[in-house]
Design a protein around this nucleic acid. Structure first.
Lengths: 192, 192
DNA sequence: CTTAACTCGTACAGCACTGTACGAATTATT
DNA sequence: AATAATTCGTACAGTGCTGTACGAGTTAAG
């Protein structure tokens, strides 16, 4: 049982197991932040003991799942064209990322129950920075408002996205219209 | 142990105990949605058995706590002057209620873990209706936008308030400025 | 083919919590 | 003062989870 931390050589089937576990963890925790280790192992089609062979405890597993979700998010975001007016860039960023953020709401809640706040913020630093940069740029262009703390503007993006996710899950917002609504709502908040 | 549901006559000390328990439950669950029955009893300065004498189970207790928080909210809201432009009414409503909503975020989370969704929405019906009425009025006056579903507009108010609560708790938003920021943010979202 | 890595079942100890049972002491109410 | 309500400790059964221990069977890698 090689510790996940060491860079020790791993067999191919182990790699596959780990991938399936992380993926299952993401899925399960995104549905129910209190999903048990057992649930996740079953969803991964793997014995609980196999799971414990790769992740010492729940904390490590949740962290890996969150990291995976963030990685997927970064991947999507890095494909977005950043040229043009800030308003438009914002729309493009949201269009391609709202759903992944939405799916990860519950996962984030799970993480908040197990990981220290500092660790979570640290993991989010990348995406947060990306949003902050965009907002600052919009402010420089005169397109975005400057009468509220930048930290609030950055985080309110998260809150609106999570809200939209909730509406989605509850069936009060149709998936087709969610993108537009998120964009319109956030443009209204950020516009000068 | 008289069931809470029956309108049976109760002794004065029992009334007092119940009040203290409900109040403690509100406080504890608002800090930690997973607070145990024991925690709450201790906080109320009461034995766990006394608590079980008045509330059959956790579910009943959480429901009572949520009901109390909502009652307190309604009380504050019913004092607000509803005359004048919708924008101003909105500002007044938010000014006097944001903090109580903020405090109850975690309590609501606790309720969501125990009570059926339908029940929670039912309990919220009053406040939700109040917000919806205001928004419709603003729309009739031409002050509020009409290009998004009314349900989204109503709920986004909640989400922004909860977000502000979070920022507050994390110390990223000073309590003095939170009111203004919530108002400005929501006015931006709702404005036509 | 040999070895080390991996899988995974069963079993167990531990924890934290819920809700119940019993019963004795206290206290409001009349 | 009599009565019934209330308080509340202790004790217990039950549940559902976490993480560990052991060990036998399977499989990738050289």
């Amino acid at each position: 049982m090689p510790p996940a931390s060491t860079g020790r050589r791993r067999r191919a089937d182990a790699e596959r197991s780990i991938a399936r576990i992380v993926s299952a963890a993401r899925a399960c925790l995104s549905r129910d932040p209190n999903a048990s280790i057992d649930d996740i192992a079953k969803a991964a089609g793997v014995g609980r003991m196999t799971l414990y062979g790769h992740f010492r405890n729940r904390k490590e597993l949740v962290e890996a799942a969150l990291a995976d979700a963030l990685r997927a998010g970064e991947e999507v975001l890095s494909d977005v064209d950043l040229d043009g007016p800030a308003q438009d860039v914002l729309a493009r960023l949201l269009e391609s990322s709202w759903s992944i953020v939405a799916e990860s709401t519950a996962l984030l809640a799970a993480a908040q129950g197990v990981l220290p706040v500092a660790r979570i913020r640290e993991m989010h630093a990348g995406s947060a920075q990306r949003v902050e940069d965009l907002i600052r740029r919009g402010q420089d262009e005169g397109a975005f408002r400057t009468d509220m703390p930048i930290a609030w503007l950055v985080n309110v993006v998260q809150y609106v996205l999570h809200g939209a996710a909730e509406e989605n899950r509850a069936g009060r917002l149709k998936p087709e219209e969610t993108g537009r609504i998120v964009i319109v709502t956030l443009q209204s908040i950020l516009a000068a």
